[in-house]
């Protein structure tokens, strides 16, 4: 009787241990839980990106597949009037004016902003780090924080009239867009350039000075040269921002879908055309699809900017790897 009892007790005890060993503990469950949450988030974000890509691509391609617009005609045509047919019975969807204007304002804004951004960045890093950081850092942060509609509004009420008085015409156009974008991309290029100049090791500067270089020679020949990949990345980030900016540009560019003949004639960028047109078209019609094609170009361009940044970043880091591996 006794023996049987202790035997069953032993068996029960063994079962308990077996159960404990075979089933995951509480900590393991928490681990699974945490993993699951992060995987779910990743999947959600991934789905989001993929569906955006899919949506824009299918819509954007529909112009060419469903409405049978010639891709070349779309990219090189200069008449944009998707509701109308031209003399050959083809829809007028020439996107070249928008593409040209977009590139013009982007490149011009970056060209104008880069020297200023470098000047401010050098002042803050090399010439007067303490004062620069105390006074200029907040200014730059403020510039980033101002909503683009405010920039557009200032452009509309200050810059456009100024240009009108100075050069005649309406005042709307690429010049106004460039000036507004210049202010908008300035903080981006500046703060990224500052990061890249700061990361140039101090000992390059001492080495250069010890060889009898002046401060300016050191900045020009060593610091800026060593920081070049970072500065290029900064400029491209600035260009990406300028290329994608819609609202502020739309307010000052004039929104005429014409080939720009100069810096002062009203024209239209890809983004401004999208914001202007998207509310006035019906889903699934050619005018709507044509706008999606513009969005597709924007998407592809931001992809190109991304790839450029990665490429330059990689080349910059390769240099550093060299040093660490040898």
């Amino acid at each position: 009787m006794e023996g049987i009892k202790s035997e069953t007790e032993d068996k029960l005890k063994m079962d308990g241990i077996k159960k404990e060993l075979r089933n995951p503990s509480k900590a393991t469950h928490q681990d699974y839980f945490g993993k699951a949450i992060s995987y779910i988030c990743i999947t959600l974000v991934g789905c989001l990106v993929l569906s955006i890509l899919y949506f824009i691509t299918t819509r954007g391609v529909a112009t060419f597949t469903e409405n049978h617009v010639n891709l070349w005609a779309f990219l090189s045509g200069t008449n944009w009037n998707p509701g109308m047919l031209d003399s050959h019975g083809q829809p007028e969807v020439g996107a070249l004016p928008m593409i040209v204007t977009s590139f013009c304002v982007t490149v011009l804004a970056a060209l104008v902003a880069t020297p200023f951004a470098l000047g401010v960045a050098l002042f803050m890093t090399e010439i007067s780090p303490q004062k620069g950081t105390r006074f200029l850092q907040p200014v730059i942060e403020l510039l980033v924080g101002i909503p683009s509609v405010v920039y557009g509004f200032i452009g509309l009420s200050v810059i456009v009239p100024l240009i009108r008085h100075a050069f005649g015409g309406t005042g709307f156009g690429i010049l106004a867009g460039t000036i507004v974008l210049f202010v908008m991309v300035l903080p981006t290029i500046t703060s990224l350039s500052i990061d890249s100049i700061r990361s140039v090791p101090m000992y390059y500067r001492s080495a250069s000075l010890a060889l009898g270089a002046t401060r300016w020679q050191t900045i020009h020949k060593v610091v800026l040269r060593a920081a070049t990949p970072g500065i290029l990345t900064a400029i491209i980030f600035g260009m990406a921002r300028a290329f994608g900016e819609a609202l502020a540009v739309q307010m000052v560019i004039g929104n005429a879908t014409l080939m720009p003949h100069g810096l002062l004639t009203p024209s239209s960028t890809l983004t401004s055309q999208l914001t202007t047109g998207i509310g006035n078209t019906t889903m699934g019609t050619l005018p709507n699809n044509a706008l999606w094609s513009l969005a597709l170009i924007l998407l592809l361009m931001s992809l190109v900017f991304n790839v450029l940044v990665r490429f330059i970043g990689k080349r910059g880091s390769m240099k550093n790897e060299f040093k660490s591996c040898k």
Partner: peptide, 18 residues
């Protein structure tokens, strides 16, 4: 600047330019 051309310096860490 002229002085440092006459009195050159080599540092503790090798610091060639990139």
């Amino acid at each position: 600047v002229e002085l440092r051309k006459r009195v050159g310096m080599v540092f503790q860490q090798p610091n060639p330019f990139p």
